[in-house]
Amino acid sequence: EDDRYSIPPAIAAFKKLVYKDRVFTIQGPGSASILNVLWKHIEKDKLPTMTGVTPEIAFNPVRRHIFGVMDIYPNQMRLLVDYMIKDFKLKEPRVAVVYADTEAGKIDLAPTIERLKRYNLTPVTKEVLNPGAIDATTQVMSIKRYQANAVVFPGTIPTTVTPLLKDLRKYGLKIPVFGSWAAMLTEDVNLLGEAADQFYSIHAVSQWYDKGHGVEEMRKITLKYHPGTEKTTPRGSMYTHAWIMSNVVVEGLKRAGRNLDEEALINALEGIKNYDTGGLSGPITYSSASHKGGNSWKIHKADPIGRKWVPLTDWRTAE
C-alpha cells in the first residue's frame, strides 16, 4: 500500500491491511511523522510491525509490537556531532544549524543542540530550510554573516540539502556540511559535482556497492531475478534497509516454528541476539526491553567524482 508519505493515506492504508486484508505482519512505514501517529494503532491492533524508521517515541519505552533494525534518531545526531568535533578537528568551531521545520527536523534538532552543548558550543545561527525549497540564498547569507565554519543539518533529505550545497558553492563558502541519515536515501547528492565535495552523512546500513558477504549476497540474489538492472536501476540505502528488515522478519518466522501466531513471532524476534547481517549493518539484537535492533552507524562522505558514498569509519555507537 502506498501511503504517499502523508498521514491520512497512511491511516487509510493501515486500516485496509488490518481490517480488510487481515495481514499477519507489516513492514513500514517509511516516515517518522507517520509512525508517530500509527504506533498507537499498531499496539491497539497487536500487529507485529517491522518499521523502516526509528523515532524515539515508538521505541522508548519499548512497544510490544514494533521492531526496527537501526538505532533511534537521537543517537545518530550525537555520533555525527562527535565525529565533527573529534575526528574532523575543526579549529575554533563556529557551527551553524540548518533544519527543516518538520517532524523529522524537530526530532533531530533537539539532540543536535544537546550534543553541541557537551562541547560548550552554541549554534552561531539556526536556519530553517523546508522540503520544497529551491533556493537557500537567505540561509547561506546568514551562515556567511555569522562566519560559520561548519554546518550541521538535522532532519536532512536529499531535496533540502541540494539547494543548500548549491548555494554554499555559489556564494563561495567552502565549509563542511554534516547531514543526517536520510540524505543518503539516494545518490542525488553525489550528482552535484563540486558542490557536494564537503558533504558528510551518517547511516546505519551499507550501500548497494559496499563490501561484505551480506552485501554480495544481496546483489547476487537481486540480479538473479533482475539481471542487468545494476546499470539501469539506482538502488539507494533504502534498498539495503528493506533487505535487512525482510531478512530479520524471515529469521523470526523460522525461529517461531510451526505454531505461528503474533505472540510467537514477537517472542522469536526478542530472542535474536547479535544477528550477523554480513556487513549490511552492525549486529542486530532484540530483547523484551529493546526493539530498536541496531545501535551502530557509519560516517560517510559524498564522492562527486566516483558518484558514490564513501565510508570513513567502521560501525560506531553513540556514547
Rank of each mutant, 00 (worst) to 15 (best):
T277H: 06
V128D: 01
A318S: 14
A196G: 10
E217N: 14
T232S: 15
I26S: 02
E251L: 05
G172M: 06
K166Q: 13
I221F: 07
T313L: 05
Y171A: 01
K254S: 06
E1A: 15
F67Q: 02
D210Q: 12
F178P: 00
W315P: 01
A58M: 09
A104G: 04
N247K: 10
T159W: 04
Y239E: 04
S237N: 08
S237K: 03
F67D: 01
M218E: 00
D135S: 12
K308C: 03
E251F: 05
G294M: 08
V152Y: 03
G282V: 04
R94M: 04
I305M: 04
K170V: 04
N149P: 11
L109N: 13
N274I: 07
P304S: 09
D261E: 04
S281I: 03
S33R: 07
I134A: 11
N75Y: 13
R235N: 10
T138I: 13
R64Q: 14
Y5R: 14
I113P: 00
R255C: 04
P311H: 12
A12F: 07
L109I: 07
L35W: 09
K46L: 06
L191H: 10
G30Q: 07
A58E: 05
S246I: 10
E216L: 08
A256I: 06
L129R: 06
I85S: 03
L192H: 09
R145K: 13
N190L: 02
A264K: 01
K144F: 02
L280D: 01
R169H: 12
A183P: 00
V18D: 01
N130F: 09
P154L: 07
E127F: 02
N274F: 14
R219A: 11
K91Y: 10
L280K: 15
L109S: 13
T122E: 15
I113L: 15
Y146W: 12
K170D: 08
G30Y: 11
G179S: 14
E92V: 07
P123A: 05
D167G: 05
D276W: 09
S201E: 03
I66E: 02
N36L: 15
V69T: 14
T285N: 06
S6P: 04
D2T: 03
V98P: 06
Y209K: 08
R316F: 00
T51F: 13
K117D: 04
E1N: 09
F67M: 13
L185M: 10
F199M: 11
H300L: 15
S33L: 12
E127V: 11
L185P: 00
T285C: 10
K20E: 11
I175E: 01
T49V: 12
T122N: 13
K106G: 05
G132F: 07
E103R: 08
K292G: 01
P55T: 12
M141R: 07
I26Y: 03
A242Q: 08
K16G: 05
H65S: 13
N130Y: 04
M70H: 14
A302V: 06
P163Q: 08
S6Q: 15
P154A: 08
A268L: 06
R22Y: 01
A302F: 06
H291V: 11
S281E: 00
Y225M: 08
S246E: 05
D197N: 15
I34Q: 14
E187W: 05
L260Q: 04
